[in-house]
């Protein structure tokens, strides 16, 4: 495996409060490798944003260490800044200027010449579909348009890692889907992306690998598929035409190595298996051979929320309504 581009070691950041220190980041260890989209999933207040701000030199950690592209965030902030792109929760586009002006200034702040900055801006305007509004004042942009400009600003100087903090918060489903496509394009460009989100679907769709964070700690880490395997498995629910063959079915299923668990009652069959999509055709063939008539069949795969539930005892959807403060 290539050298990690982001490495943290026991990162800690506590904030004082009236009820004693709040452990915003409480011993975070993680590695992000070149070219991957690394998702950081957790409820609001989990410490995702604070971790991101430590990695982007905006906030100093109390203890622990972090390096980006080999540079220490505390001792070599200038080198770190040159190697990262950062799109904060608030975005960062300058509203009284046009998109193109924003991009050119950004490039110039990273020491591009005016000519280089203009060329790169034109390239990104085309690549991220900003053409129709690039020369309008950003005040007039919709939320989705602003977000795309923000992302373009983040990769203007071809950073080694792009940090995106809750990139789709506040966007409607259509704009969210559009931004996912744009973030997917970054993967094709070879940009390493580190993104935080409290949306399950977003973490699941975009991340090559992800870490789930809660109360300042990482509670699980891996590819979305690996993480989902932490929970019981896929569930196949079968509705039968009649219950006459229930005993035979039970005997049949008990023999099959791929069946982890099952229940049969009345006309309803619930089967837990490792990989449902592979097993389902086989099951159907089996039922056919045994002349078992099937009325309905559905497959439920575990979600990241099931993973979160298993690791923390709460669901992300619960915490979402309870949360509110910034992570």
């Amino acid at each position: 495996m290539p050298d990690a581009v982001v490495v943290t070691e026991d990162l800690k950041k506590y904030f004082p409060s009236r009820n004693g220190p709040v452990k915003a980041v409480d011993g975070v260890n993680l590695e992000v490798f070149p070219g991957e989209i690394f998702g950081f999933l957790g409820p609001n207040g989990a410490g995702k944003t604070t971790t991101l701000r430590i990695l982007t030199t905006l906030v100093k950690a109390d203890s622990g260490a972090a390096t980006i592209a080999g540079f220490d965030v505390l001792r070599e902030p200038g080198d770190v800044r040159r190697n990262i792109g950062y799109v904060g929760q608030a975005g960062g586009a300058d509203r009284p200027a046009t998109g193109r002006e924003n991009l050119i200034l950004q490039g110039r702040l990273y020491d591009m010449t005016l000519q280089q900055a203009k060329e790169r801006a034109a390239e990104l305007i085309a690549a991220l579909d900003l053409t129709e509004f690039a020369d309008r004042i950003a005040h007039t942009y919709s939320g989705g348009q602003l977000r795309r400009l923000d992302v373009a600003l983040g990769i203007m100087h071809r950073p080694k890692v792009l940090f995106l903090d809750e990139p789709t918060t506040g966007l409607d489903p259509q704009n969210r889907a559009n931004l996912w496509i744009q973030i997917g394009k970054l993967r094709d460009m070879g940009v390493t992306v580190f993104l935080t989100t409290h949306y399950l679907e977003e973490a699941d769709t975009l991340s090559d690998r992800l870490a789930i964070m809660d109360h300042g700690k990482i509670v699980a880490e891996g590819t979305p598929t690996e993480l989902k395997k932490l929970v019981a498995g896929d569930t196949i629910s079968v509705g039968l035409m009649d219950d006459r063959k229930n005993a035979a079915i039970a005997a049949l299923l008990a023999q099959k190595p791929y069946v982890r668990d099952f229940t049969v009652d009345d006309c309803h069959l619930r089967i837990v298996v490792e990989e449902g999509s592979k097993v389902m055709p086989e099951l159907l063939r089996l039922f056919d051979q045994e002349s078992i008539e099937v009325a309905t069949i559905t497959l439920a795969v575990p979600t990241l929320d099931d993973v979160f539930l298993k690791q923390t005892g709460r669901t992300l959807r619960d915490t979402e309504s309870a949360g509110g403060e910034q992570g």
């Binding site: 040159r82 990262i84 950062y86 608030a90 960062g92 586009a93 300058d94 509203r95 950004q106 702040l109």
Partner: peptide, 17 residues
């Protein structure tokens, strides 16, 4: 305050400026 809210200052702070 407007620029802080829109993340402009934070964006500049993340650059080598």
């Amino acid at each position: 305050i407007d620029e802080i809210r829109n993340g402009v200052i934070e964006r500049f702070r993340a650059t080598p400026t």
